[in-house]
Amino acid sequence: MADDYNDQIKYKESPYNIDSDKAITALGMRKALGTKEDVANRQEAGDAAATLDSNSLDTKYPSSKLVGANLATVRANLSAEITNRANADTALQNGKEASIAAGTTAQYWRGDKTWQTLSDSHTHDTRYYTETEVDAKLSDKQDKIAAASGTADGLMSAADKAKLSGIAENANNYTHPTATEYGSGLYKVTVNGLGHVTAATAATKADITALGIPGSDTTYAHPTATEYGSGLYKVTV
């Protein structure tokens, strides 16, 4: 019976071990048939489940005709999808603006889809001005003023403002107190803690003698001395 298999080498080896001079055992037959597909499991183009998809069974194997038919369907669907997408892209492109040609730096793109040249002359209200008008108005303005210094006028600095703010209100509003006038003379005076004379009384003779000064005139007599003519002397003083 081994001749029925054309003495294929694989059937002579493990696991079949079928040789031309040996009888085929039931075990060998089962192993040989185990390498073959059951024709009952073949799925053909005419079957009810002729579509190959995720619902196909693992226990079935498709014929080449069924595979070809399904591939033809896939190709047709893919071709239709490509056509639909191409048509959609064309429609989308048709809805876009045409390419805009480049203008110049002196132009602007106007709402009517045309390039227009900017103009310096225009009629306007006070909300905006041309460059020339702005320059004319700024020419009448004061330049930025620097901080004042000891030699130049200017703005008050932050340090000067802080110093000025630290001076109390009416700090320099000073009025010197009035005092009683006294004519020329010798007086006993009273002075307060601010150095002001608050009282003055004419001094009397008693006030003077109380200081140890004599109450009457004094006569001074210079002592006598020996007269010497002109010359060189040793003297005792």
Results as ranks from 00 to 15, higher is better:
residue 177 P to H: 04
residue 69 A to G: 08
residue 237 V to P: 03
residue 21 D to T: 13
residue 20 S to F: 07
residue 167 I to Y: 15
residue 101 A to R: 09
residue 13 E to A: 13
residue 53 D to M: 00
residue 76 A to T: 15
residue 69 A to N: 15
residue 155 L to D: 07
residue 87 N to E: 10
residue 78 L to S: 08
residue 128 Y to I: 09
residue 181 E to S: 14
residue 220 Y to Q: 09
residue 226 T to C: 01
residue 206 A to Q: 08
residue 48 A to H: 11
residue 84 N to Y: 12
residue 198 T to A: 02
residue 96 K to E: 15
residue 234 K to G: 07
residue 133 E to S: 12
residue 97 E to A: 14
residue 62 P to S: 04
residue 8 Q to T: 09
residue 209 T to I: 07
residue 54 S to D: 13
residue 223 P to M: 05
residue 222 H to S: 12
residue 5 Y to T: 07
residue 154 G to Y: 00
residue 1 M to I: 13
residue 74 V to E: 13
residue 209 T to L: 02
residue 218 T to L: 06
residue 146 A to E: 07
residue 134 V to Y: 10
residue 205 K to L: 12
residue 134 V to N: 14
residue 42 R to T: 06
residue 207 D to W: 03
residue 129 Y to D: 12
residue 51 T to C: 06
residue 141 K to M: 15
residue 223 P to L: 06
residue 76 A to I: 11
residue 28 G to I: 04
residue 165 S to L: 11
residue 167 I to E: 04
residue 197 V to N: 04
residue 88 A to Q: 11
residue 90 T to E: 13
residue 170 N to S: 04
residue 237 V to G: 09
residue 198 T to M: 02
residue 54 S to E: 10
residue 164 L to I: 10
residue 188 K to P: 00
residue 136 A to I: 04
residue 219 T to L: 06
residue 140 D to N: 12
residue 19 D to Y: 12
residue 121 S to L: 06
residue 98 A to F: 08
residue 2 A to H: 12
residue 214 P to W: 07
residue 183 G to Q: 04
residue 67 V to D: 06
residue 35 T to N: 12
residue 231 G to D: 02
residue 37 E to T: 00
residue 223 P to N: 03
residue 165 S to G: 08
residue 152 A to V: 06
residue 233 Y to M: 03
residue 154 G to E: 01
residue 58 D to E: 10
residue 9 I to F: 11
residue 10 K to Y: 05
residue 80 A to H: 03
residue 24 I to F: 04
residue 197 V to A: 02
residue 7 D to H: 09
residue 217 D to K: 10
residue 148 A to T: 04
residue 2 A to E: 13
residue 180 T to V: 06
residue 150 G to P: 01
residue 89 D to H: 00
residue 110 R to Y: 07
residue 170 N to F: 03
residue 230 S to H: 00
residue 171 A to D: 02
residue 32 A to I: 07
residue 231 G to E: 01
residue 8 Q to F: 09
residue 50 A to R: 00
residue 152 A to Q: 08
residue 35 T to W: 09
residue 88 A to Y: 09
residue 80 A to Y: 03
residue 102 A to H: 06
residue 35 T to G: 13
residue 199 A to H: 07
residue 129 Y to I: 11
residue 87 N to I: 08
residue 172 N to V: 07
residue 47 D to P: 01
residue 76 A to N: 10
residue 174 Y to L: 09
residue 187 Y to C: 04
residue 154 G to V: 00
residue 127 R to I: 08
residue 231 G to H: 03
residue 106 A to D: 11
residue 201 T to F: 04
residue 91 A to L: 08
residue 195 G to P: 03
residue 236 T to P: 01
residue 135 D to G: 13
residue 198 T to Q: 05
residue 44 E to I: 14
residue 2 A to K: 12
residue 48 A to R: 12
residue 211 L to M: 14
residue 14 S to W: 09
residue 96 K to Y: 11
residue 129 Y to Q: 12
residue 77 N to L: 15
residue 6 N to K: 10
residue 178 T to R: 05
residue 27 L to S: 14
residue 85 R to M: 14
residue 211 L to G: 07
residue 61 Y to Q: 05
residue 135 D to T: 15
residue 23 A to F: 06
residue 228 Y to C: 02
residue 208 I to G: 03
residue 186 L to R: 10
residue 155 L to I: 02
residue 131 E to D: 15
residue 36 K to Q: 14
residue 47 D to V: 02
residue 212 G to W: 05
residue 101 A to Y: 07
residue 99 S to Y: 11
residue 143 D to M: 08
residue 146 A to F: 10
residue 60 K to T: 14
residue 63 S to M: 01
residue 12 K to L: 14
residue 182 Y to I: 08
residue 38 D to M: 05
residue 167 I to P: 01
